[in-house]
Design a binder for these strands. Structure first.
Lengths: 335, 335
DNA sequence: TAAATGACTGCAATCGATTACAGTTTTATC
DNA sequence: GATAAAACTGTAATCGATTGCAGTCATTTA
């Protein structure tokens, strides 16, 4: 692998000039430049990115912490991140944390060891270890979807979960539903609180309260959807409509409901959240909230790059728009 | 951010000793070591990975090139890659190529600029640009699922697509099916040839030939599945069983078939390939070939690390086992 | 007791770039 | 034609580690 020196030899110039032709071409004479480019081609020279990073103090990469790589929704976000990063000359280091603190710590510390310039977190946990807390103070970091739980406020890209759930709930009450079941995700997160209070606020307007026994779940997966549905179906007050906190859960729930010989939506309506691709292809197609995952990823990159470039952030919450997709998994209550 | 020098000051030793306590602890006296660890803690010191990389010539990361991040099958592979990489002290740079040569070139060149030590490619194209071909000669590289088309033979982790398709075809002929349709993926790849010849070989044993007009598709997506199914359904010799080259295609196809008022499998059997998670949850659950995606990812890392460590490879093809999952999307031919 | 060995530690070169500063040549200005 | 300004280019320090080599001191060995 040839280095800058090789090019110097071939072109008969100093390293400075070579470096400049690549970074600040207009600082060097056109003829010299040409000679150098020829030398570069001849040598098959590629600048060693690490060498330049060490000098400039920038690694030009971002770490992305994902709790669960098998969720296609996260994928879509990552796609957005990846694309935006690339456009800005950054590359993406992927960290699959599986929700484990130890792995989060490990990946987060990449920012501390100069392997990455910033961090995008797709979860609500504070990713650094207690030990690193003070070191982490000035780390460029954003979270997507979920707000990071910590003393310091970190910016977040999210949608208005409260309103989105109100929209869903209104949609269902307009079909006459009054007994709701909920299969939620992790209960410690802000999302959980926001969404639940959105649902409750609509019910309240109808004079209904949501019983605790009708809120089940705790994990975002198809299996959790199956289990949750099973639980709800066996409840004395079997709900007529089920809120699932993401589409994976909804897919699991619908599967389970059908297994019990019930029909969706004739016997029970089911709604999801996220709008992953497959949701339009299942039977029945899923009513859900569309989250602009791709754009959220892009926005997250913007925000973290702002921080890296030490530009002040205009706001600490970027709210993106949702839309309610009424498909066929929800319908008129039939009794 | 404090550097090694800060630690030297605090501990009253040279940089060499600090470096050694971290990399070769048994080269330094226990007491000194303790002093240094205390100093490290006090300084909040993190070794600058880039600085060490430049000296050692190793970046300790791998680039992974993915043609389509929204395919959950790839995700599963990436999960395996990520896990294995992490266990070996490597991190994963993610490149979403969208099948575009330009993006492939860009990401592939990360290996040339020392940003990554090796490359894992989830596609069949040769990822380097023509220009870089000679430079790329000694690059540690593996492909997963698909064989890389190039002069040099690169190792591959794949399954026996020919046999897998024979298994599927036998499964279908055992149900009495004789008229097959195929919704394939990209036609330029080895996979395409292997799979098709697997199918044909079984048909041949039954004295049947597969008409060209019954082989459609060209892309791995649900939309392609819909379009492909539409095409096959309108064929004069409507097939009674449809082979889909992955589960996404199958999901799209089933969706389309139902839209035409036909039932799966009573009117038409559909089989997929990959066994992504959702395939067990759709209606009807999909008969498919299980590819051990996670393990394939892990194996790919092994192979590329072998190359990085300049150990000779035992073989240039790592074959993984498949298994036929007979679920409910395929069944007895009813006429 | 002298010599040899082993255990630590430090000096300083090095990895491959970037960049402040200075030096040289060319061009512009009067 | 002399001087100032602009345009290039080179020298050498620097980024933050790693590591070969040499030096010091304590411990064995003969």
């Amino acid at each position: 692998m040839s280095t800058i020196k090789k090019v110097c030899q071939l072109a008969g110039v100093s390293t400075a000039t070579v470096s400049r032709t690549l970074k600040n071409p207009d600082m060097v004479n056109e003829k010299t430049r040409e000679r150098i480019f020829k030398a570069i081609a001849e040598a098959g020279y590629r600048p060693n990115v690490l060498a330049s990073s060490i000098k400039t103090g920038r690694s030009n990469s971002l770490v992305v912490l994902v709790p669960n790589l098998s969720n296609p929704f996260f994928l879509k976000i990552i796609q957005g991140i990846e694309q935006a990063a690339q456009e800005n000359g950054y590359s993406v280091l992927l960290g699959d944390t599986q929700g484990e603190a130890k792995r989060e710590n490990e990946y987060a510390s990449m920012v501390l060891s100069n392997r990455a310039d910033g961090l995008i977190h797709l979860d609500h946990s504070f990713p650094f270890s207690k030990n690193d807390e003070t070191l982490a103070e000035n780390v460029p970091m954003v979270s997507v979807c979920e707000r990071i739980v910590s003393n310091k406020k970190y910016p977040v890209v999210e949608l208005d979960n409260y309103s989105a759930c109100r929209a869903l709930a209104n949609h269902l009450t307009s079909y006459g539903h009054k007994r709701f079941g909920v299969i939620a995700g992790q209960k410690e997160s802000q999302i959980y609180r926001d969404r639940l209070s959105g649902i409750k606020s609509v019910l309240q307007e109808e004079g209904i309260t949501l019983e605790d026994s009708l809120v089940v779940g705790g994990e975002y997966s198809m299996e959790a959807g199956e289990i949750g549905a099973r639980e709800l179906l066996s409840n004395i007050n079997r709900p007529t409509a089920i809120f699932c906190f993401n589409d994976d859960i909804a897919i699991g729930a619908i599967h389970e409901i059908k297994k019990h010989g019930l029909r969706v939506p004739d016997d029970i309506s089911v709604v999801g959240f996220d709008n992953i691709k497959v949701s339009a292809y299942i039977d029945p197609p899923l009513t859900t909230i569309d989250q602009p995952a791709y754009d959220m990823g892009r926005k997250a990159v913007e925000v973290v790059l702002q921080q890296i470039k030490k530009k002040p952030l205009q706001r600490d919450r970027e709210i993106v728009q949702f839309s309610l997709l009424e498909r066929e998994s929800s319908g008129q209550l039939k009794m």
